[in-house]
Amino acid sequence: MPLTKEALLNMYRRMLTIRHFEEGITEFSRQGLVPGTGHVSIGEEAVAVGSCSALGDKDYIISTHRAHGHLLARGADINVILAEVLGKATGCTGGKGGSMHLSDFSRQILGTNGIVGAGINIAGGVGLAIKMRQTGQICLGFFGDGAANRGTFHEGLNMAAVLQVPTVFVCTNNQYGLSMPQCKACGNIDISARANGYGMPGYRVDGTDVIAVYEAVKSAVDRARDGEGPSLIEAVSYRLRGHSMRMDQMPGGSDYRPNGEVEDWAENKDPLKIFRSKLKELGYINEKEAEQLDAECRQLFESAADFALNSPEPEPETAFTWIYAPEGVK
């Protein structure tokens, strides 16, 4: 079934929200308001939104250190996520996890991860629980091209195929593992081709095209829900910013890409520009409406910033909680 105008505009709205959120926290980081660091996904919004739009409300996601987009694409509360990035008491882990440890159990977002590739096995395990409990859900596990070279990728995908779990593995190939270009990190740059070795379908899609991502993930989700097991999707996109906000602020922290590469992708393959043109072509939006939507999404961030900046710091005693279950919990 093709996506409706309303669904497409909603996807565009989500992509814009992610862009404004990440541009906003980049500025906050420069101002010293973000403890530690954070990893923005500017340029990768189509993968987050295309993938999450293919899920049902009860489906789970597991994500990575570069997760703000996944959370917002899944409909997590922007106030709570921003407060967490700023380390505030009103954040999803009370300011104890930060940008790399986001979750929203009301939206079935079971968590993100500071260890590259660690979420792959966890996503498989969530799929295993779904299969054992016969709940009809699926789990979508995000990871990146860097994670695809970890042993957990091999063990996790093979195990998924062996156990036939309803997990869809989505690799956001943003073409860099920190400073390492993917073409130098992989013997074969086609990560999706590895799926065949595990006995599951693999698809390589243009990760700057939100509709293409949606369609590929939707078919993998449908397949998993029909009990036909896991799939691997590789969405090829581009990380328009450096590895992390902190690293971008270091002198020379982004000096590892060929001249003009970032500018070329920003100019010609920015997923927001591509989608906006598509929506105009379809007659779903005009320039004025597009500007208005952009301003609305910027306002979403501004109001989240009001909430987060005015939120309290965590109480000292919270440093000692959540390490074990409270006494008496069964």
Binding site: I62, L110, N121, V126
Partner: peptide
């Protein structure tokens, strides 16, 4: 990792 994921679900 699978045991952990299954526990979380």
């Amino acid at each position: 990792g699978y045991a952990l994921g299954a526990a979380m679900a």
